[in-house]
Nucleic acid binder design. Structure first.
Lengths: 237, 237, 237, 237
DNA sequence: CATGAATGAGTCTTCATTCAT
DNA sequence: CATGAATGAAGACTCATTCAT
């Protein structure tokens, strides 16, 4: 304990500035996005000299990568805990959703960065939204594979796709809050969303007695035809 | 017809180069992302002179905006046609999923740009992934609101969230293909994904006794097919 | 002819600016040295915009390399002409000396750059004073090798070393002028230097009746030895 | 002795670190050149803390100047001892050559710095290769002036130029070793070079019965002359 | 004396945009 | 319409130097 404490304290002292800078980077990224964010902005936000950023981070990319790893690895770790833990598929799905929303509750800005800005890293960078989600999706696809074997999952659902759908639902659900489409100040709204996402994912969105037999008979009206042609136009010059 | 022809000929001649450039921009954006893509790259890809891009587009932002509007408005228009058309909730959901996957089948690169790259536009730009999806989500949230009133939707599901979940599932499902997580060369995989997304969304992923076997049988009539071809045009060239 | 003329004219027009920049680079390099020379200085000296330098040269290194190649390759070419031409060793030696001094007469600044500043290129660069002189030395070492076989050269002189000595004499002779140790405005001084270098190199510096037998028997008195040891100390450690 | 000892002990203790740093600076300069060498590199090489370099040296320039003075003044001192000592011109010339090669034998890296890197100091710096050699050349030019009066030197040779040629020969001879053109691991090669340089300088490079009358009669054909003059400087473009 | 975190001015380099031909 | 040379503002990164501990 004492040792751990010492390490922690030393560590804290050693990297107090580093963390300040990292925090500033998250904020600036969240506000302006990766490309809109200048090292000068981060330094100013952190209240340190320009060059100090380069004392702690090799370059802008590494700074981003650290922002990312710090946030994302924590998320993945917690998702893994849920996936590899005990419980039914339904419980685990709800667990994964909870993890994501809890992260948002604790640090909305960090989540915003993870969801909306991470992908903006230069082509050369290893990290981006794709890779990140791919990791999480692969991870939880095992969850679905096992559930399928256990007969908990629909026979016709591909585990990988199922996993993708879950994270898609989570991501866009959060996006609704992140973008202000839904009111994130309403705590109960978040709670409801959490429950709805997991439940809808598990049981579907239809009312108990779902007819749905007519699927496939839908037909667009002509008006749509027209508007489509029009909306195409603006491009000109 | 004659009119159309005239327009086509004049328009074509006038903007043949323009379309070439737009097409090149989509390709380069898809390959390198918005910020990684230089005007010079677009010009080279299009096989035209450097400065010509500025004859047809005011600046880089407008070029992006055009790429976006061309692709996204086409998508939104078709979604609107589905939403405002006739049919049950299940049919319309399947219709929306189909529209998205059809767009991907016709022009994967353009879809990749829309899903992964659009958000990279500068902060100042009006368009970005959030805004775009917000539009689509708002649009189809009406669908869910109506369905709820009609008793088709679960009582406990917020229409807006339901809409978000649908597009989240679609987006991440497509992302699986875009990023190569799933094999997009496998046509049947795309077909299966389409059906699974709509069905899972409607009935949930659990093994329960899901009917919905008919989902996925929806087929666009020729008129829709046609409009699709047109409104989607820019993705082709 | 016409064609050639056209090419020349077009070429001139095409690269007029390029040459202006190159010329400016030589001047600035000669004045401030490679590291002391900013791209901004070159641009200002050339009277062009900052970025234009990068239109014609990939980066600072390439600019330097071009300055170097332009000057040095011309020199090497002429040395080669002398070395591979007809004539006795003595004639060729004089020829090499003449080439070097003529270059200095025509463009002292360029020679100054070649002699004094070229070596300052960053480590990564392929070109530097060593490499350059090595080329020239290797080239003319063949001259000495052939002369040795022909019995024109002293038996005990290594061709490579002989070549090195010649260029060393030339370089330091020019350095005397470049640094102002000798008065380069005195045309006859240059002429005399040319003749003396070649002649001394060929026949030695001693008066006609050279004793020279004792050469190599010189011994430092103890005092000198001592002081030497002391003054050299820092090189030890 | 006692005095020396005291000085040594106090001095040693005081400047042990200083000498370590100086040594490190020489090594790093020799390896990377003045501009390629960072204070951090020197500190690391010396195994001391970053800021300690600034305890012993005011700034980077002073560090270089010290490296230079330490090495070069030692060399000049020893050359002065030779020049001002007893002996014939031939003996003294051989002595100067010996001093240079001995320095190289004892510490090749330091010599490399003196020959190749010193000149890289910023323009503002007082010391550079020119200045350094100018001192040495001026110094030994007296040697030649006296030799000329004594009739030991050719009548037509300018003392200053003679001195320049000697150092040019020495420098380029050493350069051959420094750059690896000649194999410096071969001790006998160094010995031979020493003798050859002095001997060639004194007696010339021609075979014993050297007519040498033709020296200076070599003439480039007109075409070559012409192209030479024209193609001279910026050569090509 | 020693340490190395902190500072920030100086440079190179990129690239969107303009404009003369 | 087409071309691509010319412009210059913006921003990442380096590194000598300082200073609190």
């Amino acid at each position: 304990m004492a040792q751990s404490k010492t390490v922690t304290e030393n560590g804290s002292r050693e990297s107090e500035r580093r963390r300040t800078i990292l925090r500033a980077a998250i904020d600036v990224f969240a506000r302006k996005g990766y490309h809109g964010c200048r090292i000068a902005d981060v330094a100013k936000e952190a209240g340190v000299a320009y060059g100090l950023v380069y004392h702690y981070f090799k370059n802008k990319d590494e700074l981003l990568e650290t922002v990312f790893d710090t946030g994302w690895s924590g998320f993945v770790t917690r998702v893994r805990a849920v996936v590899e833990g005990e419980g039914s598929l339904a419980q685990k799905v709800q667990g994964v959703v909870d993890v994501a929303f809890e992260a948002y509750r604790v640090d909305p800005r960090a989540v915003k960065v993870l969801i909306l800005e991470i992908a903006r890293s230069p082509a050369g960078s290893r990290i981006n939204r794709q890779t990140a989600f791919v990791d999480a999706i692969r991870l939880s696809s095992e969850l679905f594979a096992q559930a399928k074997e256990a007969g908990e999952l629909r026979e016709d659902l591909d585990p990988l796709l199922g996993s993708a759908l879950l994270f898609g639902a989570i991501e866009m659900g959060l996006t609704a809050f992140v973008t202000g489409l839904a009111d994130s100040r309403d705590a109960s709204a978040l709670e409801r969303a959490k429950a709805q996402i997991a439940d809808s994912f598990l049981h579907g969105v239809l009312a108990a007695a779902s007819p749905g037999a007519e699927a496939g008979t839908w037909k667009p009206e002509k008006s749509s035809e027209k508007s489509a042609t029009k909306s195409k136009a603006p491009k000109r010059t």
